[in-house]
Design a protein around this nucleic acid. Structure first.
Length: 402
DNA sequence: CGAGATTCATGTGAAGTATACCTTTAGGCTTAA
DNA sequence: AAGCCTAAAGGTATACTTCACATGAATCTCGTA
């Protein structure tokens, strides 16, 4: 056994395809950001006056996931604060908050607390009334003449959870400040986010807007090439691999993160097979793996009743062995399963809707057919690949305590 | 034998109910002046 | 007196149920050749 392991490790160590894997991870900030020059320039030109300690317009940035929004804004802000340090002036504070992070996102209070923490102050985790916290915040930043640049990443999440008058309050804070000036940069994934905002907030936050369009396949290729160069050892990547990665990701609204994931997973797969190269085949398998993980995630996060129904379908699928499954069968099994697991039994009507939703998700394929005298029903086929089935079953059994 | 009626098992739509969650409001209580 | 907190009241979204009606091909019925 020991020998085997030694050998395994040896192979791993000697044959690693990666030079530096962190480059492919999603939190990596590259030195250069290809194909975002115009956007970066716009951001920079809007924020540049902060260097002279002037108040600038609030900025709102939006675009789909993986279009480089966060990275670009961070890049510009880092440059700016670097410049400020060089100049030796000390009149700019730069705060970056990701509203999606669990510990921050819940309440207005927490976001404020986070802001204060970043400024070096502290507030108790709970207890103070909200406007006290505001007072504390104002006090902190108003000590000297400065510009406070607040970047709120995934701002749509925060607004969904809290409400938009939080932002309104922030924008209005300027009138209470004697020395300092606040400017906000909001980053959002949702293009329609602005539409359902309070008009007052919309006008003040959206003084400037920048859209990040999705990358096309060629641009994705450039990004991948650049990263792959530092990530992998020489000659590891076969011809056309990058192009295929880019093509896959371009199909999914040009998500660069997705493309990088794909490449990384492909690399890991190749490595595990002791292959010396990453081939087109690896990309395919990687894509499948990512899809599979996504599917399992969906199954896992599905509500209990949905899982019960799915469990019944899977049970039938095993028994029936490629014969057709009908709604009635599913419902019968479903009742048993509920009984066994001490869950409430829903009506047939509801189960029918649940089945329709599974159809939407692509977990099953259902067709409404008429069986003549035997009435009308859905003909159901489970659409999970065999390897997923076993995994899915484990998940279901675990979450349903079977 | 074939046209039409019947039938079955469930699909589908509308409307109602229960529940959880959130916001608002009012009134009592604490606190600071 | 002001401001905070809590409890009750009101509002809203979600998940589900109930009722009612729609479907459509296999099957039955019955008139006709």
């Amino acid at each position: 056994m020991g020998d085997k392991l030694d050998k395994l490790f040896e192979i791993y160590a000697s044959q690693s395809l990666f030079k530096n894997k962190t480059v492919l991870q999603s939190n990596y900030i590259p030195g250069a950001i290809p194909h975002r020059d115009t956007q970066i320039e716009s951001v920079a030109s809007i924020l540049a006056p902060t260097l002279r300690g002037e108040k600038v317009s609030n900025l709102f940035v939006y675009g789909k996931t993986g279009t480089g929004k966060t990275i670009s804004v961070q890049h510009v802000c880092n440059k700016i604060s670097q410049k400020v340090q060089e100049m030796g002036t000390n009149n700019l504070s730069y705060l970056f908050i990701n509203c999606k992070l669990k510990k921050v996102s819940d309440t207005e209070y927490r976001i404020l607390a986070e802001l204060i923490n970043e400024l070096g102050g502290s507030v108790p985790a709970t207890g103070l009334p909200t406007d006290q916290v505001y007072a504390r915040f104002i006090e902190l930043i108003d000590q000297k003449k400065q510009v406070v640049l607040i970047v709120l990443d995934e701002i749509d999440q925060a607004v969904k959870k809290i409400s938009d008058n939080f932002i309104y309050t922030l924008t209005r804070l300027n009138s209470e400040l004697k020395n300092a000036q606040i400017c906000l940069v909001g980053i959002s994934n949702s293009l329609t986010f602005m539409d359902n905002l309070d008009p007052r907030v919309r006008s003040s936050l959206g003084e400037e807007e920048i859209v990040f369009p999705p990358y096309n396949a060629l641009q994705l290729q450039d990004i991948l090439k650049e990263r792959a160069e530092t990530a992998f050892k020489e000659g590891v990547i076969e011809e056309g691999v990058i192009a295929k990665c880019a093509a896959f990701a371009a199909r999914e609204h040009g998500d660069a993160r997705r493309a990088l994931d794909l490449l990384r997973v492909a690399g890991e797969l190749a490595e595990r097979e002791n292959s010396k190269h990453i081939t087109l085949l690896h990309i395919d398998t990687a894509n499948q793996k990512i899809e599979k993980d996504k599917m399992l995630d969906i199954i896992e996060s599905e509500p209990k009743q949905f899982q019960l129904v799915l469990k019944s379908i899977m049970q039938l699928d095993k028994q029936k062995n490629s014969e057709s499954i009908f709604t009635g069968d599913v419902y019968n099994i479903y009742q048993e399963v509920c009984e066994r697991t001490k869950n409430e039994v829903l009506t047939q009507r509801r189960v029918s809707d649940i089945l329709a939703e599974f159809d939407m998700l692509g977990i099953i394929n259902a067709r409404v057919i008429s069986k003549g005298r035997q009435g009308r029903t859905r003909e159901i086929k489970l659409m999970l690949a065999p390897q997923i089935k076993t995994k899915a079953e484990e998940i279901l059994n675990a979450t349903l305590n079977l």
